[in-house]
Write a protein that binds this DNA or RNA. Sequence first.
DNA 1: CCAAAAGTGTTAAGCCTACACCCATGT
DNA 2: ACATGGGTGTAGGCTTAACACTTTTGG
Lengths: 228, 228
Amino acid sequence: MSIDGYDPTKFPPFAVTVDLVVLTVRPPHLQVLLVRRGESPAKGSWALPGGFVGPKQDLVDAAQFKLADKTGIEVGQAHLEQLGTFGAPKRDPRMRVVSVAHLALVADPPEPELDSAAWHRVDALSDSSLAFDHAEILAAGVERARSKLEYTTLATSFCSPEFTIAELRSVYEAAWGSALDAANFHRKVMATDGFVEATGRTESAGRGRPARTFVAGDARELHPPIVR
Amino acid sequence: MSIDGYDPTKFPPFAVTVDLVVLTVRPPHLQVLLVRRGESPAKGSWALPGGFVGPKQDLVDAAQFKLADKTGIEVGQAHLEQLGTFGAPKRDPRMRVVSVAHLALVADPPEPELDSAAWHRVDALSDSSLAFDHAEILAAGVERARSKLEYTTLATSFCSPEFTIAELRSVYEAAWGSALDAANFHRKVMATDGFVEATGRTESAGRGRPARTFVAGDARELHPPIVR
DNA sequence: CCAAAAGTGTTAAGCCTACACCCATGT
DNA sequence: ACATGGGTGTAGGCTTAACACTTTTGG
């Protein structure tokens, strides 16, 4: 940090929190988990889940803890990554709060137990309906999620452990709100080494030919984009 | 933040700092600005420039201030963006410090005035030669810079206000350490709307046909990659 | 048999790479 | 004249998008 010229014992006091952009896909919509604020400021309005970072707690640990707390989803069940840090001096009217936002991608989550938490379609939220600067954080999360879908195999994080190519395709269609050519999508996924791994089983969706099922492959990065 | 259940006046005390990964290109090398630590811990070893965020100071403002302080480069002269936040509980042995790392890309900077600051080739640094977790932060900065060069028009940030296509190419060659086909590079840049704008002037480098000069265009994003 | 969804084939257009070649200058 | 770097042309290979077509099921 190069703390030259400063007395380390006299630093300005900051509160550090984590905020979570928890996204899921419920075809055909991309949804985000929001909690209704029970206290002032912005009492009654929707906000991203989050909380203080403990004095000896690592940042991701704090985010993981909050995620488990709000959704019941444990470590390893979801993709979690740091999104960015928001620290405008007046973003919280009470005090100086620096929030390290995280992005979580989860597959078919349970309905929230608490009444104060609920899933919302991201394309149906107006900026002004979120507390603090959470609209900005959400926008950053959605943008990051889209770009990761495009350039990595992360879409599998939005799918149940065993899934069909059509389910995987519905993830992309939900994220951008437009249809993809099923034939070309199928081929592109198959041609990408380590994206998916066949189980040998099939799954019938009622009508039509049953689809083969797959599990997530071991590749995490890929350069050529899958869609767009 | 969802501070439900917490008393906002009793938050755990954190110090918040900014650290800077300041990169420049001096063909054929990518270089980073480091400062020699004058105090313990890690006294005498190299570190990224940085410092505390003021109580009422925005994060980017703190980064901008530090950048101007160490390099003399003012706002608008450089590209500056948030890189990520590093807050492992023991990253600084003295106290809990959360550092918001920023990435700065600058064009032909002046030699540092202070003896304690110097430019270093990034490909000639060993991880263990940097204080704290700064090797990790530097790695993140270099990776981000490469990916931004690939997918945006940001390479112009590494060039003087008026530059030739060869200079622009040398930025890419420095970042990856390998040569590019000059002919194809030229065409690709020209074909990218808003990447560069011709001045009408030329510049002679001594031998060979003089090159036309350009200024940065207005496009900041582009999807098809320029190199690789 | 028909509709629906999975999956494969085909083809034309576009893009990229490699490299040949011409251009404009200093010495 | 010739070496040097700037810049344009071009042909072959590769990737892509669009859509026709076959496969496999439920009703």
